[in-house]
Simulated assay, not measured.
Amino acid sequence: MKNELMNRTKQFALDCWSFCFRVPKSREYNAFVNQLIRSSSSVGANYRASQRAKSTADFINKLKIVEEEADESVYWLEIFNEILPENSKETDKLMNEGKELLAITVASIKTAKRNNKK
């Protein structure tokens, strides 16, 4: 599961990058593109960091960053869905993956907190 999530979070960043590469170039689009690339790549980077956490508290903290960045990525994808409706098939797919990663992360945080209390 750990390697699967590492791969999925990395693929999410790559898929978002690939989408952003095809977004028209303009000052307005570029601002949103930069935000999506930053947040989507942070999902994988912070998930990877969580796997090297020094303690349960550190693990939970890093996963909370993953949670925030995944949620932010979904937000930017929602924006792109509205401003580039012709790309909705791709943004819907990316949003679904972002929401799945978010749900997995939230569940992992809950499990880690529960296990830490034992």
Rank of each mutant, 00 (worst) to 15 (best):
I65R: 07
I65N: 06
I65H: 04
V66H: 01
V66R: 10
E67K: 13
E68W: 00
E69T: 01
E69D: 07
D71R: 10
D71K: 12
S73M: 06
V74Q: 09
V74R: 10
Y75L: 11
W76F: 13
W76I: 14
E78R: 14
E78V: 07
E78A: 07
I79G: 05
N81Y: 13
N81K: 15
N81D: 11
N81R: 13
E82Q: 15
E82I: 00
E82S: 10
I83Q: 11
I83K: 06
L84Q: 12
P85G: 03
E86F: 05
N87R: 14
N87C: 13
N87P: 00
S88G: 05
T91E: 09
D92S: 06
D92G: 08
D92T: 13
K93M: 08
K93P: 00
L94C: 09
E97F: 04
E97N: 05
G98N: 00
G98D: 04
K99F: 12
E100G: 01
L101D: 06
A103L: 11
A103K: 13
I104E: 02
I104L: 11
A107M: 00
S108C: 14
K110M: 05
K110H: 12
T111S: 14
T111G: 05
A112R: 08
A112D: 04
A112T: 06
